[in-house]
Amino acid sequence: DEFHFHWNGRDIRVRGDSEELRRLIEAIKRGELSEEEIERAIEILER
């Protein structure tokens, strides 16, 4: 699976399928994380 979302003017695409990944992306979409937490998560996910 590939998750695709927009954040902070960026087009983010992440491959993978796990419950943890889904929860993280939902939290990002709901605005539950700080900008710094989101940046760090995206860096890890894009590897």
Rank of each mutant, 00 (worst) to 15 (best):
D1I: 05
E2L: 02
E2I: 04
E2F: 04
H4C: 06
H4V: 08
H4M: 04
H4R: 02
F5L: 03
F5N: 00
F5H: 00
H6R: 02
H6C: 04
H6F: 03
H6T: 03
W7I: 08
W7T: 03
N8G: 06
N8S: 00
N8V: 02
N8M: 08
N8F: 02
G9F: 00
R10C: 03
R10I: 07
R10F: 01
R10V: 08
R10M: 08
D11V: 15
D11P: 11
D11L: 15
I12S: 00
I12M: 03
I12Y: 10
R13L: 12
V14E: 00
V14N: 01
R15V: 12
R15C: 02
R15Q: 11
R15D: 13
D17R: 05
S18L: 07
S18I: 08
S18N: 12
S18A: 09
E19I: 12
E19N: 09
E20P: 11
E20M: 09
E20F: 07
E20A: 08
L21F: 09
L21G: 12
L21S: 12
R22E: 06
R22F: 09
R22W: 09
R22N: 08
R23N: 14
R23K: 11
R23L: 15
R23F: 14
L24R: 00
L24E: 00
I25H: 04
I25V: 14
E26A: 12
E26P: 01
A27T: 14
I28L: 07
I28C: 01
I28D: 01
I28S: 02
R30N: 11
G31C: 06
E32R: 07
E32A: 12
E32F: 11
E32Q: 12
L33E: 02
L33K: 07
L33A: 04
L33F: 12
S34N: 11
S34W: 04
S34T: 14
E35W: 07
E35P: 15
E36Q: 14
E37D: 14
E37A: 15
E37K: 07
E37P: 01
I38L: 12
I38K: 01
I38N: 02
E39W: 10
E39M: 13
E39Y: 12
E39V: 12
E39D: 13
E39P: 06
R40K: 15
R40N: 10
A41H: 06
A41L: 11
A41S: 10
A41G: 07
I42D: 00
I42E: 01
I42L: 08
E43D: 14
E43K: 10
E43F: 01
I44C: 05
I44T: 15
L45N: 03
L45P: 01
L45D: 02
E46Q: 10
E46I: 13
E46A: 07
R47Q: 12
R47T: 15
R47N: 14
